[in-house]
Design a protein around this nucleic acid. Structure first.
Length: 218
DNA sequence: CACCAGGCAAGTA
DNA sequence: TACTTGCATGGT
């Protein structure tokens, strides 16, 4: 990717960082908690996911072995607020079962394999698509895989990037070919884009106070 | 009450 | 390959 792409991406990052400051993502105590949150937040509001995490924590099920031992029905009852709870209970079970059987339950060894191996393995687990896989790689494994969510796509499109027809991997490549692969930087960038989306990119197009307005001129 | 949040997998042609 | 549908809660 050209030097101008890199410069443009950094300019966008700087604007958002100056507007909002550090975001302190992901809000979780352990890598396992990050993974559970990544699955539960699919098509769900984070405030509801937080309740689910607290329910699981209170039931002492926020642990890979404990979750393997729990029934899908019991998990479903605890994660009701996350939407699609029956489906997500199965997704959690499927993930835990995968790590238990393929990695003898060693989550740390699973997450510390190199990204080129980890990403396809995650994508091969039913219930984990590209956005969830990249969230896990970036925030649970601390490896630089850029997360592209619906807000990222909308923000880019509304501020003049021609990204309407790009698929997930094309957009991810767009970021990763422009930026140096540093996990803390990717973490902050995605968190800032998410915050921008929440504040300015919902129903109203191009809100007047969005910090990205006029980004080309400076 | 209607509608939105907004990822993934399976099904259709 | 491209498009559609099921999932199914809680907040506005």
């Amino acid at each position: 990717m050209t030097d101008t792409h890199r410069t443009v991406m950094h300019r966008v990052f700087d604007r958002l960082f100056q507007a909002f400051g550090p975001q302190y993502w992901w809000p979780a105590d352990t890598p396992f908690e990050v993974i559970v949150g990544a699955i539960l937040t699919q098509n769900a509001a984070w405030r509801n996911v937080r309740k689910c995490i607290e329910n699981l924590k209170a039931a002492e099920l926020l642990d890979l072995k404990a979750m393997c031992a729990a029934s899908a029905e019991d998990l479903a009852a605890l994660i009701r607020p996350s939407v699609y709870y029956n489906r997500k209970a199965l997704k959690l079970k499927t993930f835990c079962e995968h790590v238990r059987t393929r990695w003898e339950g060693d989550l740390d060894r699973f997450l510390t394999q190199k990204m080129e191996d980890l990403r396809p393995e995650l994508l091969g687990i039913s219930g984990i698509g590209p956005e969830t896989a990249d969230s896990i790689i970036l925030y649970a494994a601390f490896q630089p895989s850029f997360v592209v969510d619906a807000y990222t796509r909308r923000i880019l499109s509304r501020h003049g990037w021609a990204v309407e027809d790009s698929d997930y991997d094309e957009l991810r490549d767009y970021f990763m070919n422009s930026l140096e692969p540093e996990a803390p930087f990717y973490q902050e960038f995605h968190a800032l884009l998410d915050r921008t989306g929440h504040l300015f990119c919902k129903s109203k197009p191009l809100c007047d106070s969005c910090p990205l307005n006029g980004w080309r001129e400076t």
